[in-house]
């Protein structure tokens, strides 16, 4: 970008640019290698996508084979001509990221058991704490939010959200 313009914040679309650049190119090398392997696997898998209609000369393998060709070519280029990647975060940040992914990943597992309101309230509270929110206010905001969403979806829009097996058993609903 020219003219001293700042890098875009990129909240959707555009390139994944972050202001600080490191000279590390390992990310590109790993990604390139992975893409080449992925492309080979996709091409291998596509062998079995065959149908013998004369009315469909290319059949279901055309799209994945094309995707594999694009991925393989671009992957090879990235492997041998890597570009500098943005700095990877320091280890304490990685820990926070892993925690966030763990919270997000636990959410679907917990949903059926503890129900939408508690699961969403809990997950949003934990994420707020990761963003250094004040504990009491984070929890208050999160549970008001999840309760509000529950009322909106279940009562106004008629989308059933899980109440939670746990509560059904305890309350004998």
């Amino acid at each position: 970008m020219k003219g001293g313009a700042p890098e875009p914040r990129e909240s959707g679309g555009g390139q994944g640019s972050r202001p600080e650049l490191g000279e590390g190119r390992l990310g590109d090398r790993v990604a390139g290698g992975f893409l080449v392997i992925l492309a080979l696997w996709v091409a291998w898998e596509s062998r079995s996508f065959v149908v013998g209609f004369p009315a469909d000369p290319v059949g279901p393998r055309a799209l994945p084979l094309f995707a594999a060709a694009v991925l393989g070519g671009a992957g090879l280029y990235t492997l041998f001509r890597p570009e500098p990647n943005p700095l990877w975060p320091p280890s304490h940040t990685v820990l926070r990221l892993v925690t966030a992914v763990a919270i997000l990943g636990a959410y679907p597992l917990a949903l059926a058991w503890i129900g939408f309101v508690v699961a969403t309230g809990g997950a949003v509270t934990l994420l707020s704490l990761l963003f250094q929110g004040p504990p009491v206010r984070s929890a208050l905001a999160a549970f008001l939010f999840s309760g509000g969403l529950f009322l909106l979806f279940v009562h106004l829009l008629g989308v059933p959200l899980p109440v939670g097996q746990l509560f059904i058993r305890i309350m004998g609903w």
């Binding site: 949003v124 994420l127 999840s146 969403l149």
Partner: peptide, 10 residues
């Protein structure tokens, strides 16, 4: 942000 971003996740 502690208010906004987790809300987006929710």
């Amino acid at each position: 942000r502690w208010f906004l971003i987790p809300g987006v996740a929710g």
